[in-house]
Write a protein that binds this DNA or RNA. Structure first.
Length: 475
DNA sequence: CTGGGGACGGGGCCC
DNA sequence: GGGGCCCCGTCCCCA
């Protein structure tokens, strides 16, 4: 601890101790082996933050889209898993100033993160929460991620609680285009003792600092997003969710790309950033706990929206776009297109879906060959006129004529095995298509065409009805 | 360039 | 009220 910090502490405690009777001091000292000064931590943090602002002892530079942030290696190490990895890998060069470069989030976003690191206060707004969560995902700051998630969820709760206020506001309040949400949204995290920062206080105009209206908000990697980018109706489709490669957490090698003391430019893969974000959203979906020492405060007018008469039936307003739905469940469903949450994995191929019905549809279409249509000639097929073909994890039907054309008629179909496969006892287990079963397909009693990678199964229309009862094994 | 298949979001209905 | 399901429209990818 620096001398100045210690001196501050002593100065701070002096009047307190002097004010106590000597007997009290000795009695307390005898009962408390190690006295804990509650203000110490915040004081220390305050001092570190002051040092950061004055660039005192800062031994780490972070370059974010051209803007340089100064910080302390120790503080970053203690706050972020990413920096922990990065700095520990470069521990040999501890004497050299460390430099990290990011282009995956904006300077504003990193300002919020860094302010949190040095103050414990997270300045979240409806405009920055996704960016901050993505950045926190990348930096592996799980506390911040949790706070962001709670923030988003809380928006929903407040939306519900204050729905009556939609209608209590006059048309004048709503303006001519009542469906438009209010321009600003504000909320923030603060210490229990309360924050002096006005932007954290839940008053109406508190979010003006960000200056971004609701309908300007969209969910994109910061590197791809303009702050002013409007949110089109299907814009979430352009979000990295769809482009995401198989989900994976940031790898240590990615962190290693930041070279200590070299200031090497680095562009992190936005896909990986969001993938992590998605993954964490899902993994932590049931974690609503608030980090100890914090309390959540949010502006009371977050969802105080009113709508014209024609829209008054639609009560739930998406906090990230102008979309309005009638049911809270619909809003919850809609929000996944903003958060990228995909809680429904396909057990057959591992692909993840944001909605259960989409998963069901995918499973039926891709893995169950439910369509009684020949994939090639589009004619209706029955158990007499066609067969199910398995290609990898896909199943579809071909009529006997088309089967002959693809030269698989020479393949023997093990009817006995087929009967066994669709027997009631085994049907359910088989049709669930567990990945583990995929991997151990040697036990599957079907015949594979080695050249075409096809597996021919006899069509059984009775199975068709039964398959409708089979649902993907949703974990 | 075009058509088909699949993914995906929204809306509505039923339980 | 919420979950599940179905339908529809749109978009994207690919052959």
């Amino acid at each position: 601890m620096r001398r100045s910090a210690v001196r501050e502490l002593v100065v701070d405690l002096k009047p307190f101790l002097l004010a106590l009777p000597q007997s009290t001091v000795s009695r307390v000292a005898s009962h408390i082996p190690s006295m804990e000064i509650s203000s110490h931590q915040s004081h220390l943090l305050q001092q570190l933050n002051e040092q950061r602002r004055q660039d005192v002892f800062c031994d780490c530079s972070i370059l974010v889209e051209g803007k340089v942030f100064k910080a302390h290696r120790n503080v970053l190490f203690a706050s972020s898993g990413y920096f922990k990895m990065l700095l520990s890998q470069n521990s040999k060069e501890a004497s050299q100033p460390a430099t990290a470069t990011f282009q995956t989030f904006s300077p504003d976003t990193f300002t919020v993160i860094l302010d949190f690191v040095y103050s414990g206060k997270l300045s979240l707004t409806g405009q920055n929460v996704i960016d901050v969560m993505s950045a926190a995902s990348f930096l592996q700051m799980t506390d911040v991620i949790g706070v962001c998630k709670t923030f988003i969820k809380s928006s929903l709760d407040i939306s519900e609680k204050e729905k009556d206020r939609y209608f209590s506001l006059s048309d004048k309040d709503a303006g001519s285009n009542g469906a438009e949400p209010p321009s600003f949204y504000s909320s923030g995290w603060q210490e229990e003792s309360g924050s002096p920062r006005s932007r954290l206080s839940p008053d109406r105009g508190a979010g003006i600092a960000s200056g971004k209206p609701w309908n300007k908000y969209s969910f994109h990697p910061a590197s791809q997003r303009s702050p002013q980018q409007p949110l089109a109706k299907h814009e979430p489709r352009k979000d990295p969710v769809k482009k995401t490669k198989p989900l994976r957490p940031p790898q240590p090698s990615e962190a290693a790309q930041c070279q200590s003391g070299q200031g090497e430019a680095r562009t992190a893969d936005p896909g990986s950033l969001v993938s992590k974000s998605e993954e964490q959203v899902q993994v932590e979906a049931d974690v609503d706990s608030v980090p100890a020492g914090y309390q959540y405060s949010q502006g009371p007018d977050v969802t105080s929206r009113s709508f014209p008469d024609g829209l008054s039936r639609l009560r739930f307003k998406c906090p990230y776009c102008t979309h309005v739905v009638k049911r809270k469940a619909d809003l919850k469903r809609h929000l996944r297109c903003h958060t990228g949450e995909r809680p429904y994995p396909c057990q057959a191929c591992g692909k993840r879906f944001s909605r259960l019905d989409h998963l069901s549809s995918h499973f039926r279409t891709i893995h169950q060959a439910c369509k009684l249509i020949c994939r090639k000639c589009k004619r209706h097929v029955t158990d007499l006129t066609g067969q199910v073909v398995q290609e990898g994890t896909r199943r579809y039907r071909l009529c006997n004529e088309c089967l002959a054309e693809v030269d698989v008629d020479s393949l023997p179909v093990d009817l006995e095995a087929e009967r066994h496969r669709v027997s009631p006892a085994d049907r359910d287990q088989d049709c669930r298509w567990h990945l583990s079963e995929e991997e151990s397909r040697s036990n599957v009693e079907v015949v594979e065409d080695g050249s075409a990678g096809l597996v021919i199964q006899q069509v059984d229309d009775s199975e068709e009805e039964e398959e409708k009862e089979i649902k993907p094994n949703i974990g």
